[in-house]
Structure formats: C-alpha cells, structure tokens
Nucleic acid binder design. Structure first.
Lengths: 339, 339
DNA sequence: CTGAAAGCGCTTACAG
DNA sequence: CTGAAAGCGCTTACAG
C-alpha cells in the first residue's frame, strides 16, 4: 500500500517507471490532459495511489513559470471592515482556484514593503493590496515596476497605475454630513482617521461639499485626525471636548472611531442622540447592536473583496484591458444616534 | 539602471556574470553568508541593484527542499474568535519569518480536505489547522501520514496525534454553569453548537460536571444543538421557547449563539438578566458592548494563535519532542445578563 | 499516442 | 576564499 522506506520523496519519474510509461505521459495524466487514453490514465493513477505520490506544485510552478499563488495584503484583520473584505476576496480567489498568501501590515509601511517583496519572491501570480495609510516611496516605485497584476483595495495610492476596488468615500461622507445638516446642525465635527490617507481626504472632500451645499462654514478646530482605531476615537473626542465650543454633531471617520467617541461622551454624561448626534462609517455588524444603535454609512466590504478578486483574476488571465475601477455606492443607515 | 529588454527574468547567473564571480558566490551573497568578504559582497549587491534582480524563492525552495511557507486553515474568519486567533498566529508566524498560506473551510469537511491537499502540494513547512466541526476520515488518515509538522487549534480531532493549542472548554463550561447554579437556578439550558465537534462535547462535559456537583438533574429537552452562528442561536432559542417549561437560565455555546438567543428572547418580551439569565462563551469584543452586556467565559483566541505558532515553529526547527498540548485556562466575566 | 532530452533558477557538496 | 557541475521535480517543445 505504501512505500515502506520513506527515505525519498516519490517523484513523477517513479510513478512513470512503475506504470511503465514516460514521465511525459505521467505528467499529462496528473494534469488531466484529455489526450491520454483511459487505459493508460488508469494505469498511472493506480501507480500514484500505490506509491503514495504527492504532486509537487513547487517543481511544476518552477518549470511552468506560474505559481497559482495570489497575495492578499491587508492592514489589520482585527478591523471588521477589513476582515469582511478579506472573506470576500479569499472566498472568490479560492473559487477561481488560487491559493492565498496572506500578509498583514498593521498599517506599517515598512512591514508592507517587506511583505510585498517576499510575496514577489514567491512568484505570486497577482496581488491584492489594501495599502497602509502611508506607503514608502520605494513601495510605490516597486509596485509600478511590478510585472504582476495588481489590484488596490479600499484605499488609493497616488502615483500608481493599478486597478482599484473600493467604495465611494466622498459620496458616503456627503450623505452623512448632509443628513446632519438637514437635521439643522450648523456645527458638525469630523473626527478620526489619518490625514495622509486617501480614505481620509476623500471623506474630507465629501464633508466639504456638503458644507458648501448647505452654506455652512468649515472650522479647522473641529476637524481632528487620529489613529483609525477605537482608542484613536477616544483621543479625538477628548481633544474636541476640551475645545471652547463643542459642536452639536459629529461625523466619524469609521464606526470604530464612533465607538471610541461615544464612550468618551457617555462617560462625560453627554447623551448621544439627544445632546449630540453621531454618525459613523462602515456599518460594521456591531453598529446595529451598539447602545444606542449607531447611524452610519453602509459600505459593503465583502462585495469589495469579491470585486477585487474578480478584477485580479481577469487581469491574470489577460481578459481585462487598461485600468479598471470598481467604485461601490454607499448608503446611509439611520439609527438612534441621530434620529 | 534597469535592463531595457524585459524579455527574460534576471537570474543569479546573470548577476554572477555581471559581477565577475561564480553563481555559487552570488548565491552565498544573497543569503548573507558571512564567509564572503565585504568587497566581493558589495560588487554582487551592486550588480543586483543594476540588473534589477529579484530573488527566486521558488527555485531556491525547490532545490533546498523547504518552502518557508506555513499553512493556516481556519473555519471562518467572520467569527471574531477565529479572526482573533488568526491574528495571533499570523503575527507570530511572520515574526518567525514564515509566509502564511491562508485557507478557510466555512466549516465544510470537503473544502478542508482540498485545502490541505493543495497546501501540501505547495510543500508547506508546517500546518496549523483549526478543524471543521466534522472531518472526513480521509483527512484524518492524510493528516496522520503527513510528514510535515502539524498543530491542531481550538478543536481536537480524534484519532490523530498532533500538537494542540486551545482553551479548556470543559473548565469554561463548568465555570459558567456553576455560576448560574450558585445564583439558584435549577434548570439551566445548554444552547447551540454542533454535537459532533469536540468543542461541544468538552463543554457538555463541564456542564454535566457542574450539574453533578450541584445535584441538578440533566434534562435532554433543554440541550439544543445548532449551527455555531448567531442564526443558529435564534433557531435554538425558538425551539426552547416552544418547549413545555422553558428554563430560567441559558448557557450558550458561544457569544454569537448568545446574541441570537437574546435577540429572540427580547423579541418575545422576555427581559434578559431579569426574567432569564444568559451566559455566553468566548468574550468577543461585542460581548461588552451588547445591550445588555453579556456575562461570558473569557478565552484568549489571540494567545491561542500565538501558542499554536510557537508550537509549530519549534516542531519545524526540530526543537520539540513528542506531543505538546497548550491548554489555556478560561475565566468568567460577569456582566448584566446574569447579575 | 508516446518518449528522450533540455531546462526552469536556484543550492549543494566537492574540489582547489 | 571561490568555482564547475550536478541536481531538486517537474513541463515543454520536438520528434516519431
């Protein structure tokens, strides 16, 4: 049943000899090539079974110059938006038959750089990159020189030509701020997020546009950036509360930020939804169950992941020409924090 | 600066020729072998830069019979417990210098089987497997024959000899049920989870032990299994409510299950924490923010991930002998659902 | 329909 | 300290 001396790996050559065919034939059999007649095929399959042969994809890839490997690099799986995105991408990629190399950067530019290099050395067929807030110049250069298909996700990277899958952050921010303005709020803060990232500047564009459309005046002092985490939201909220006249409404960079912000407000005795309105961004599952349930911009991270995988696949098989952009439209989900 | 005709990949041989050394020397340089003098090293590094050489890890792996790749297979990243586990494992593995191949099974035994096979074909150096609730016999056989290091995580697999990292589910269930019994509850349901999985039977063992220690009587009718999801919890709760005499307390397989259960109870006008006490398992971040905040058994998925990575690494480098088991102790976190 | 031989890009003894 | 040559396990023209 099994080769008793497990000294050496069983190779295709062993299989071929055992079955009395050439390695060429054996190779065609393992790859299900239809031009091998059934009888021969069965003989080879039997030998494979008997010898306990394991196909060596590494050797095959080496020779055929492809790897079937796709890299997916994200900032932080602990973020629900990102993990949902990853689920979408991962499932779709596996469906296409790829194996996924996963990398997480913790939003660190150097780690991102190293991960990309390692993956390229592993000869990935393509890469889906959810870039860190800030990327090294070296990385941008490397990405541009990359001969492998690349899809950027969730965050753009300037000076780079690649497919992109993400949501329309500007539109999302516009929806949120317009909602607050229509409720009569004159002073609406914008809290959280990293100013250098495109995800922040896009939201800022939407924020600004809504202000303009409702004849409101921007106040730099109530636009406070932070780490894109719940803790970052807490810090931003504390800064805001220390300012001379806190605003009556807060647009948050993300739901995570909003949670941090609400934690601080609540601790200060401020009742969210009555004293101050708060709107988040992402509509992560917790938003609905939070107390009080959070008004937020619903994006579709899992769909973005799926779209990114599709873009990459069509790029890899050479089906798509030029640059593709998949921008999903967000929608506003109104809940108790701004009713 | 760069080779103008990007026809062919730049190889180590090209680099060696350009630098006027042998490929042996060039190879030693790229691997930072200290026995190459500084002058030679720099000459080679210059050539690498000038030619835009990219190290081909696939070829290297092929020759050196190792891959630097580690497989991590989990059931479902959408589950916070699992995503936290993945973060721990992933970070630690990257720290050790491995690249991670990620697979998700959606708790499907066939998909798990295929993923393992594919990864083995990719010549992974080791595998961390969070097994699906039920595994194919073929998989168990394959895993036992595997010549590569294997660490099982979060869930045991019978008839398999491998390292294991997880928490003490029995102890966790015992803590939870004892807590409810001490509050005076006589009839405590156990809802959710798949009966065939070790994660369920272990909890059942703890549940039984607590019942015995407090002289309570088991009632089969209030032990209701389900999918390990929030929707599964809803279903189990509906079944429970339709039973002749619903119990006064519910021990849930997981926080996710508990959320589903509480959703149904609340919809029925039953006030959790007053009419019925509920305890979860896992202490996922949402448990604290849920309304009302959930009493639960705190496990440490990220730590388990880290431990699994450590076990695997020491196995790969041949440092550990025999079978290792890392069982983390859980603790009970009492919140409003059972105050 | 099938096979012999070259080659993918490295690393590894071995020799000097 | 450095190099020539073999070999990792496949696939790919090419020939018959």
């Amino acid at each position: 049943m099994k080769n008793t001396n497990s000294k050496k790996r069983v190779t295709l050559k062993d299989v071929a000899e055992h079955a009395g065919v050439s390695t060429t034939t054996a190779s065609l059999v393992v790859r299900n090539n239809p031009r091998i007649p059934q009888a021969t095929r069965e003989r080879v399959l039997n030998s494979i079974e008997e010898l306990g042969y394991i196909y060596d994809r590494v050797a095959a890839n080496m020779r055929s110059q492809s790897s079937n490997l796709v890299g997916v690099i994200v900032t932080n799986i602990a973020n629900k938006f990102i993990s949902e995105f990853l689920i979408g991408a991962q499932n779709k990629l596996e469906e296409f038959g790829y194996t996924v190399l996963l990398g997480t950067t913790s939003d660190n530019a150097t780690k991102q750089q190293n991960l990309i290099s390692t993956m390229v050395e592993h000869r990935i067929d393509g890469l889906i990159l959810n870039p860190s807030s800030i990327s090294l110049e070296k990385t941008v250069k490397q990405l541009n020189n990359l001969k492998i298909p690349l899809v950027l996700a969730n965050r753009e990277l300037y000076n780079i030509s690649a497919d992109y899958a993400g949501i329309d952050y500007e539109e999302g921010a516009y929806l949120a701020v317009t909602h607050l303005a229509k409720k009569g709020h004159q002073r609406i803060a914008f809290l959280g997020g990293v100013k250098e990232s495109s995800t922040w500047t896009k939201r800022m564009d939407g924020y600004r546009k809504a202000f303009k459309d409702h004849n409101l005046e921007l106040e730099e002092s109530i636009i406070i950036a932070s780490d894109p985490t719940s803790e970052g939201g807490e810090e931003a909220a504390r800064v805001l509360l220390n300012s001379p006249k806190p605003p009556s409404a807060i647009f948050c960079f993300s739901d995570l930020i909003a949670f941090g912000v609400m934690k601080v407000l609540t601790k200060e005795g401020i009742v969210v939804g009555r004293d101050v309105d708060v709107v988040g961004f992402d509509n992560i599952p917790d938003a609905e169950n939070y107390h009080p349930p959070l008004t937020t911009v619903s994006s579709f991270p899992r769909s973005i992941g799926i779209q990114a995988a599709k873009l990459l696949h069509s790029k890899i098989i050479g089906e798509s020409e030029g640059l593709q952009r998949m921008i999903l439209k967000p929608e506003l989900v109104i809940r108790d924090t701004s009713k």
